[in-house]
Amino acid sequence: MLDTVYRDFGTGYVPHWHRDIIDLAAAYLTPVRHTLLVALDGARGEVVATAALDSRGPAHPPNPRRIAERFPSGVSAQLRRVYVRPEHRRRGLARRMVADLLAFAAADGGYRSVYLHTDPAVEGAEGLWRSLGEVVHDERADPGGGQGIVHFAIPFHAVTPSPSPTPDSTPSPIP
């Protein structure tokens, strides 16, 4: 995850934005309504992708007020940290992990909606999310461009879990 914030986002670690990356257990493993998936390269044992879900809605600020109001904490599942290493992209891994997260959110029974935001500068990210959800706000259209972030609503049925993993990596929840 840290590789992604340095390489793809160019921001490096920013405690206010990335605290969950440093304490994965507190952010995703301890709360029963949260989860973290990790895909490993079976041959090398390396993490090649991550995907997480939590019940924290987008905060205002920095997100637009209407987005925070539409996706309140507690009833909104937020997809987070859906990162795939560049050499493993375009193999369906992110879609499979998102399908598993959506199934987790639906099984919870307490979520009314699924939200995520993405940085469209990350190669392939905006296209993936546009294929799975609905743009609810594109900050690039705001005066001054906002943060340049695109906000999405993802339907619970956007993708269905795949019965078979990709040949070289399999997402699994962290125990």
Rank of each mutant, 00 (worst) to 15 (best):
R66H: 14
G74K: 03
I67S: 00
R66G: 02
D108M: 09
R70K: 10
D3Q: 08
R80C: 09
F156D: 04
Q78L: 10
R96C: 06
V14A: 12
T118R: 02
A43D: 07
E46S: 01
A106D: 09
A26E: 11
A68P: 00
S131V: 04
L93G: 06
P62G: 03
T35S: 10
Y83W: 09
E87W: 05
G57T: 12
P143W: 02
L102D: 09
G109C: 09
L37R: 07
A99N: 01
A27D: 13
T35C: 14
G42F: 05
A49G: 15
E134T: 13
H34E: 14
V38D: 07
P61C: 06
G110L: 14
F71H: 12
G124W: 05
G10R: 07
D20K: 11
A158K: 07
H18C: 13
F104H: 09
L24A: 13
D119C: 03
E139H: 14
A153T: 01
L37V: 02
F104Q: 07
L132M: 04
P167T: 00
E139A: 15
A49Y: 07
Y83C: 00
R33M: 04
R89H: 05
Y83M: 01
T4M: 06
H88P: 02
T50H: 05
H151L: 07
L102T: 14
P165F: 13
F152R: 04
H137T: 08
R95P: 00
L24H: 06
R85P: 02
W129H: 06
G57D: 12
V159A: 08
S162I: 11
A43C: 09
L53N: 11
V14M: 11
P171H: 11
T170P: 02
T166R: 08
G10Y: 06
E134G: 03
V32T: 07
P167L: 11
V159P: 00
W129T: 00
T30P: 06
R7S: 10
P15W: 01
I154M: 10
S172I: 05
M97C: 03
D108R: 12
Y83I: 02
L101C: 11
T166S: 09
T118F: 13
D23P: 14
R140A: 14
A107V: 00
I22F: 02
I174E: 01
H34Q: 13
R90E: 07
I67G: 04
G148D: 14
D41Y: 06
R95A: 02
L29R: 05
H88N: 15
A103K: 15
A39F: 07
F71V: 09
A49P: 15
